[in-house]
Amino acid sequence: MIENPFVVACIPAYKEEDYIGDVVSKAMKFVDRVLVCDDGSGDDTGSIAKDLGAHVILHDQNLGYGAALQSLFEEARNLKANFIITLDGDGQHDPEEIPLLLDRLMMGDVDIVIGSRFVDCGSSEAPKWRERGIKVITGLVKNNGLHLTDAQSGFRAYNRNAIESLIITEDGMGASTEILLKAEDNGLRVAEVPVNISYHENSSTENPVLHGFDVLLTTVKHLSMRRPLVFYGLPGFLALCVSAIFWVIGIRIFTLSGTISTNVALIALSTTIVGLILMTTAIILWTLISVIR
């Protein structure tokens, strides 16, 4: 165990002038430094955080949740932080629960701790439709080997190993699942602790539909890059099988009647093209990933 670890709270924020002050002031009780990334808010979010003693990273324009995390992680690396805590600037995450995550992380047997609303003793005020969406995304991540209940919680703790090895590339909300998938790739150990997530009418500045699609597409993209032969090769092979069937049917029709069935020929041709594109994509990605690894 590290004696007197340097702990940094990292708070991405966008138009959170009504809540950021409370979040920063409470977080300061449990960490050595508070970093706030004002992601192009255009309001008093950054100035309020700065007046309370937080170090503010300012984006000139709104780049997205993932971009804010990139800036925060980079600054935490520069500060040589032993542990960082990420939490939202809108008050969803209770800074008073920071010790729950830190205590678990300091046991030393894991690299990342996630505050989950779905484990025993955790709770959430989120609408049911949002919870179902979160569980769908979590299911995709779980099927990839990580045994989690809440892949979308942004209330997390990271040790030095995780801080150094996780390079975030997604600018949007999909960064939350990108981190977990890369954690699995890097052999990082992940655990969860129960937390309470609160919601209010301004809890999210993102359109929930766009938010959901962003996260879903990002998750599928990263999973497909990890298993290109499954995601692209298998559908490509099936498409070629279908095309072969229609080529046989088309040839048989031509042999018996001397005419070409336009519909059959179009289906055969289109499935052949799709199949070849998918198979080629699978082989190229598999080769590139094999070389990189």
Rank of each mutant, 00 (worst) to 15 (best):
V190R: 07
A175F: 09
G275N: 10
F73P: 00
L238I: 13
V209H: 11
R104Q: 11
V242L: 15
R132I: 02
F237V: 12
L240R: 10
S153V: 01
V274T: 07
Y65Q: 07
D39S: 08
A239S: 15
V195E: 09
D103C: 05
M173D: 11
L288I: 13
K29W: 04
S71A: 10
D39Y: 01
L285E: 01
L288D: 04
E201Q: 04
V31I: 08
Q152G: 03
L217A: 15
G172W: 12
S203P: 03
K221P: 09
L238G: 14
Y158L: 11
A54N: 05
V110E: 00
D39K: 00
H200T: 07
I284L: 11
D214C: 08
D32N: 11
F73L: 04
S165F: 05
R227S: 14
T138W: 09
Q70T: 08
D32K: 04
T205R: 03
T272C: 05
S261I: 01
L238R: 14
G89H: 06
M225N: 13
T287H: 10
I273Y: 09
T218I: 06
A27G: 07
V113E: 02
F155K: 01
T218L: 15
G233H: 06
L72M: 06
T138Q: 01
S123T: 12
N144I: 10
V34E: 04
C37R: 00
L188E: 07
N144R: 13
I167Y: 06
A265N: 09
N263H: 13
S123Q: 03
L229P: 00
N161H: 15
I267C: 14
Y65E: 10
V248C: 15
V36K: 00
I85P: 02
I163N: 04
I2H: 13
M173V: 12
V141R: 05
T149K: 05
V209Y: 14
G258H: 06
A49I: 00
A162D: 06
F237N: 15
I2G: 03
K142Y: 13
